[in-house]
Simulated scan of single mutants.
Amino acid sequence: MDLLRQRFETLTTAHIADACVRAQLPVRCLGLHPLVAGDKTAGRVLPARHAGSVDIFLEAIEGGAAGDVLVVDNGARLDHACVGDLIVQEAQTAGLTGVVIWGLHRDTVDVRAIGLPVYSLGALPTGPLLPEDRSADALTSARVGEWVVDSSDVVFADDDGVIFVPLAHVDDVLTLAEGIRDKERRQADLVREGRTLRDQLGFADFLARRAENPSLTFREHLRRVGGAVEE
């Protein structure tokens, strides 16, 4: 996982998303944002389904490993916050590399001071008021948005949001993402030197070909010319 995080340092979640498209994998992403702009993290998913009490998080951390990212399923609830500074501090002390919350957090000032990357739907002062029934899979999987993730997944997170990739495909996705990053950087350098992106991507040719074949898509054209913009 250390190598994975090192490789992600020079990538973005946008690169990862485009690489998933290239690899024909589902693009499982969410528009969650870090409490501190510029934070980014990556690691194996450590799932926990909240049920009105923080003991589920302590139990998850107890069974986790350094380098994991705690992924909290609170059903996107907006009536209470489920993670505060004590759990974030506990996660950091255990060697976790981030916390992703499909719900709300609180103790924002203290959480920021801890320095562990945290992503959520926002903040609210109140915690849960009542305990709830705990599901049988509370420590084996988490639902985030339309996706269900578990320890066979890796999460990447930065200012654009979070994205989940199957651990079995991570190396291939990172390699594709690095290629996309390098190509986009070369294209940006050429634009700064005066060669427009339209020229680099043969946009006039695309328009002419599309006039002859209205079903031609720009992505098909990009694959033919080897450009990189949207995937």
Rank of each mutant, 00 (worst) to 15 (best):
G122N: 12
D159Q: 04
E90I: 04
R143N: 10
L121T: 00
I114T: 03
I87N: 03
G103Q: 01
R106C: 10
V111P: 00
Q89W: 11
R106V: 01
I101V: 15
T126W: 07
G103Y: 03
R134D: 12
P131T: 05
L139P: 00
C82K: 05
A136G: 02
L104Q: 10
A157N: 01
G95V: 06
L104E: 11
V83R: 07
D107K: 03
D85S: 12
D153G: 04
G103L: 08
D137V: 07
Q92A: 09
V154L: 12
D150V: 08
A94V: 10
S151A: 14
E132I: 01
P128D: 02
P125K: 09
A136K: 06
R134S: 06
D158A: 01
A142E: 05
V109G: 07
D85K: 10
A113G: 00
T93L: 13
T108P: 02
D150F: 09
S141N: 09
R112W: 00
D153L: 04
W147C: 12
S120C: 14
D159W: 08
P117M: 04
W102I: 04
W102D: 14
V149T: 14
D150M: 02
L86Q: 13
G127P: 09
V155M: 02
V83L: 10
R106T: 09
V111H: 06
L129I: 15
I87A: 12
L104V: 09
D137T: 13
W102M: 02
S120F: 03
L96G: 07
D150R: 06
V144W: 01
S151H: 14
T93C: 08
D150S: 14
G115L: 01
L116H: 04
E132G: 14
F156H: 02
L121A: 03
T93H: 13
S120T: 11
T97D: 12
A113P: 01
T93M: 08
V109K: 15
D110Y: 15
E146Q: 15
L139M: 14
E90F: 14
L129Q: 04
